[in-house]
Nucleic acid binder design. Structure first.
Lengths: 154, 154
DNA sequence: CTACATGCAAAGGGTTTGCACGACA
DNA sequence: TGTCGTGCAAACCCTTTGCATGTAG
């Protein structure tokens, strides 16, 4: 299972036009970093991309990889899985459950919604392997932050 | 919305018996750290707990908070939200979608399961505020790792 | 009394930044 | 040619660890 070369090239062309639009220079490094992530089905971290790129551009530095990935993120060409520099949060409840997170204040609250659990056995899920756990994470503006916003609006 | 004092005390007693069982010493610091996390509905990080505890135990150090939290985790008294020291993973697909993660090798793959979309309109979800986005994360043993395990078994 | 827990400070690992040099447009 | 990007090294932040002292059992 690999990404089709034609798909990769289409993505690269998309990057080129987006970069042009944004006034971002198309350096050799940026093109290779984009080509690398566009051709992968896993979700690599910066270090993994760095090692792959080094084969083609031996002198490249890790910080250029980071800088480029955040540029691609800002251009909405890639997404992130996991937040940068986030500390571990501890949950008083050790039983499996789901969460609600406020996009503004970051508060995390427990969600007890048993109806989610029936989706754990979804056949689509087992494409890649066995399913041992299942987490749903909802995000939005919490009531407190929502009130704060509307107060400002007055 | 707060945790009932009786619930907190029941949890503290549970901790005491678990600690005794495990041969873990019940220090003042450990009891206060446990009481703090047991009485909270949010999911604090170590620093947040540290600041609350310092009011009661001014001389406590942050590393004791960390060490205690991981002990509580090992005793299955608390859980974590987010993994410790995990690096950011970059996702070539910027559109909202879901993920499958292998618990052994850590590979992350995209899941396209439209049936998950009804979670967004679940009434249980809006208890805390508006729902703007949601993520489903399935985890298990991927096919590759599963094959590797059964090979060892022969 | 003795093993284990604590506090301190320093190290670790992933990520970011300041600066001078280098290269795209 | 001028501005922006790169590589290098050092800084940063959260977290962990080594070590001497303190304390629960």
């Amino acid at each position: 299972m690999k990404v089709e070369p034609s798909v990769i090239e289409r993505r690269v062309e998309h990057f080129k036009s987006k970069a042009h639009e944004a006034g971002i220079k198309l350096t050799h490094q940026r093109l290779e970093i984009f080509r690398e992530i566009a051709s992968r089905l896993d979700h690599p971290d910066a270090e993994s991309i760095y090692h792959s790129i080094r084969i083609r551009i031996p002198g490249i530095s890790l910080d250029t990889v980071y800088r480029t990935l955040w540029i691609l993120y800002d251009l909405n060409l890639i997404a992130t899985y996991g937040q940068p520099r986030e500390s571990v949060h501890f949950d008083p409840n050790p039983a499996p459950h789901h969460h609600y997170i406020c996009v503004r204040c970051g508060i995390i609250r427990d969600l007890s919604t048993p109806e989610f659990d029936e989706f754990a056995v979804s056949p689509a899920a087992s494409v890649f392997g066995s399913v041992l756990a299942f987490r749903v994470e909802l995000s939005g503006l919490c009531e407190g932050c929502s009130r704060a916003s509307s107060a400002v609006a007055h």
